[in-house]
Design a protein around this nucleic acid. Sequence first.
DNA 1: TACCAGGATGTTG
DNA 2: CAACATCATGGT
Length: 292
Amino acid sequence: MILIPTPQEFSYKELIKFLSRNEKECLHRIKDDTIYKVLEIENELVLFSVSFDNGLVVRIHTENQSPFVNDIIKNYIEDWFDLTADLKSFYEIARQDTILHQLCQKYHGLRMVGMPNLFESLIWSVIGQQINLNFAYSLKQRLVQSFGKSITFEGQTFYALPTPETLACLQIEDFRPYQFSKGKAQYIINISKAFAEGTISQQNLSLLSYDEIKQQLTAIKGVGNWTANYSMMKSLKSYDAFPVEDVGLHNAIKNQYGLEAKPTIADLHQMSTQWIGWRGYATFYFWHSLLG
DNA sequence: TACCAGGATGTTG
DNA sequence: CAACATCATGGT
């Protein structure tokens, strides 16, 4: 068992709400407010669970060979739930914007739920491009269940994210039975090859500036401005990365500000000047508002 | 039925 | 450089 202390501003309730947002989510599972997830570490699967009891309580349910498993899982969780961000600074900035300030009070302690694995966020955002989220979750489920490794624990099957090496070997036709468009299939292959061949490396990117990272990501065919910013905020702790084209953001802004129509891109650039430094975090809070 | 979904790319004017 | 067509399918 591993205990991870939580910072002062931390809401497990809002975390669970966000993680529970879609029933088809297949890369983690929630049962009785306990979170289950599988990671592939050094070619073996590790199943762990997280619950809350005056801090995060982590249990590892597999017997693994690697001596580093505990540390890797601990770091993963701190990254996944963004336990180190200085939320006070975000809340201070947000006070300038009445609507955002209200969301910060309503969801106090909500931390950005990230994707510690950059490959995962890129694949997920390509899947989500231009289609409704429910369909996107169906596509993700088919991809993960078809090409990801799995283990069974207490009668339930848990899936790990397919590796870049696995997906890089596929052809466009391999995706067609799962209702991926040719474009999405090609984009996923492109991203997988970039990781498998080492053209893109999360470790290398993490050392670069915002502009340099974005340039490298958008060099991959299929990764545009929205995808690059989405992945940077979810995987690379770019709290100011701003996926301004995001339809979910547009809807949330329209709802929260009581607008007649969805804001334009220009409107959003204007509004977001109030959130500079934390535009990604602000976006995450607006997304969360869609859940109620 | 037409239009929109957590967009990106390639082509056209 | 801006405007448009295309992608594929589920929902409204």
